[in-house]
């Protein structure tokens, strides 16, 4: 028996919004420690890794490890039927081929349940090696989304250059060149507005705007985003999900032809 309950459907809606542009379907691996999802996008350029800890749920029970392959388009249809403040419960029997998603209004007067067919997906889990990153940048998630959106107008690629002074995002194309520099913030009143750079050595890497923009669909989950970079390894874009876990996106760099 698997049962996981969250106080607010809005969190699950935001999580789905953060992955459904990259993934058509995905396997949710459930164990007593929580829910894990790891999947590559169709073109195998990026990898999504979602971790939801069991202690972050209002109720969590998972008697036997369970892998639930879900069509994310179908899940989005179901979540559209929830009000943001509804409680949401996911339930499945051991070895079941369906999952039930139930919404309850705060006053318990409306209860709806949706049974969704599960899919058998080819699971290809990738091993992610530990990396000592050259640069780790923490910045407001909305600022990162804005930069990715703005620079995508100028080029398919964005160059991220990080030094101890700051981080520079550049794009160059037919229109010309765009550069956006963010300096490390001195003192800020609000932690969520800070730009913080931890640098071992400077790094310059090039990434596809299309994927960065897809990652920023996770912006509503978190006030801050963390970018971890190292020469010739994938970028890690991480959004914390408060009291519940995190979503990490890995993006392979572009290299000179």
């Amino acid at each position: 028996m698997f049962e996981a309950r969250l106080g607010q459907a809005t969190i699950l809606k935001k999580i789905l919004d953060a992955i459904k542009d990259l993934l058509n379907e995905a396997t949710f691996d459930c164990s007593d420690s929580g829910i894990q999802l790891q999947a590559m996008d169709n073109s195998h350029v990026s990898l999504v890794s979602l971790t939801l800890r069991s202690d972050g749920f209002d109720k969590f029970r998972c008697d036997r490890n369970l892998s639930m392959g879900m069509n994310l388009g179908s899940m989005a249809k179901i979540l559209k039927c929830a009000n943001n403040e509804d409680n949401v419960t996911m339930k499945a029997q051991d070895n079941a081929d369906t999952v039930t998603i139930m919404f309850e209004s705060a006053n318990q007067e409306k209860v709806s349940d949706y049974e969704m067919k599960l899919m058998n997906l080819d699971q290809e889990h990738l091993g992610i090696p530990e990396t000592d990153f050259s640069c780790v940048v923490r910045m407001p998630a909305m600022e990162f989304a804005r930069i990715c959106r703005d620079l995508a107008q100028f080029s398919e690629s964005v160059v991220i250059c990080c030094t101890k002074e700051g981080v520079k995002f550049s794009a160059s194309g037919d229109v010309g060149t765009a550069n956006i520099k963010l300096a490390q913030t001195g003192s800020v009143d609000k932690e969520e507005e800070a730009v913080i750079i931890e640098m071992q050595e400077p790094v310059t890497l090039t990434f596809a705007c299309r994927y960065l923009n897809a990652f920023t669909k996770a912006t509503p989950l978190s006030t801050q985003v963390q970018l971890s970079m190292c020469a010739d390894v994938p970028l890690v874009v991480e959004y914390a999900i408060k009291d519940l876990g995190h979503i990490r996106y890995y993006l392979a760099p572009k290299i000179e032809d």
């Binding site: 195998h44 350029v45 990738l126 091993g127 994938p234 890995y250 392979a252 760099p253 572009k254």
Partner: peptide, 12 residues
């Protein structure tokens, strides 16, 4: 050139 993520992370 766009590298593939599988050229960095290997199948388990």
């Amino acid at each position: 050139m766009q590298k593939s993520i599988t050229s960095f992370f290997k199948k388990k």
